[in-house]
């Protein structure tokens, strides 16, 4: 039995922590995260409020948990949308080849050159800041990433003999893409999706920090961070908690993605 890489194990543990907290928040939080109590503001950690309360007396743990849920939902939606469109484009480019492949990949290059945050700010300026627009913006920046990975992996599979055999059997390129290419590029796509999940969490936090993502009262690590910023001298812990959450989530998914890649890509393992 091969030993699993350390980054995979640490990543999986961190990811489980974050997802666990987010899932738990659906059915239970210590308090309602919207409950305010002005008299109890800036409360220290206590038996009722494990990490204390914020400037409006809301329970910090409950807010962090609810924010985790939102963060996961945004990242999941963005990676699913961007990943599906990008993978479909990559498969298409690989299956057709020629100028279609060149065109798709050049457009992907342009997408790559576009700063994601700038694009999100632009969207917010045009359509107004909202969670939906944040999701769309993050989805959009994922499309070229997945298109590239899907095309590169698909091009490899197209050279396999079983694909030639399928062509000899008379299958169309669309049918081969569906039956053979997609199942066999699933591993690199899933690895990429895990890494992009980390990027999406960071992007969501950044957008919310700038006020372009989740709108009050929806809790968000990014907005908690920006609200706490003005109170840095009064209550630094309010900035530290969401910051730690962001680091945990991003690091977790990043390590998990790296670990999965090490496990699924034998070339990289040999070089270690």
């Amino acid at each position: 039995m091969k030993r699993l890489p350390v980054n995979l194990l640490i990543g999986a543990a961190l990811v489980m922590l974050v997802i666990g907290a987010a899932a738990l928040s659906l059915i239970w939080t210590p308090h309602d995260y919207t409950d305010m109590n002005i008299r109890g503001k800036f409360g220290p950690p206590s038996e009722t409020h494990w990490l204390g309360t914020d400037q409006l007396g809301r329970d910090v743990v409950s807010q962090l948990m609810a924010a985790a849920r939102n963060s996961m939902a945004v990242a999941l939606a963005a990676v699913l949308i961007g990943g599906s469109i990008g993978t479909a484009l990559g498969l298409l480019a690989s299956a057709i080849g020629g100028w279609v492949e060149d065109l798709v990949m050049r457009i992907a290059d342009i997408g790559f050159a576009f700063p994601a945050l700038l694009f999100a700010i632009m969207l917010a300026a045009v359509f107004g800041p909202s969670l939906t627009n944040a999701i769309l913006a993050i989805s959009f920046i994922n499309i070229p990433v997945f298109a590239r990975v899907a095309r590169a992996s698909a091009n490899q599979i197209w050279t396999r003999e079983y694909v030639t055999a399928a062509q000899a059997a008379g299958l169309t390129r669309a049918a081969i893409s569906r039956d053979h290419i997609l199942p066999n590029i699933a591993a690199p796509i899933i690895v990429q999706a895990t890494i992009e999940f980390a990027v999406a969490i960071l992007a969501e936090a950044a957008l919310s920090y700038l006020g372009l993502g989740a709108q009050p009262p929806a809790p968000s690590w990014g907005r908690m961070l920006s609200e706490a910023q003005t109170l840095m001298y009064l209550a630094p812990q309010l900035a530290i908690y969401p910051g730690l959450c962001i680091v945990t989530a991003v690091l977790g998914f990043g390590l998990l993605g790296d670990g999965l890649r090490d496990v699924t890509d034998p070339r990289l393992v040999r070089e270690r």
Binding site: R160, E161, Y162, A165, A166, P183
Partner: peptide
């Protein structure tokens, strides 16, 4: 057609 590589010609 039948191919050379019995390990590569089956998905």
């Amino acid at each position: 057609m039948i191919f050379q590589d019995p390990f590569g010609s089956l998905d």
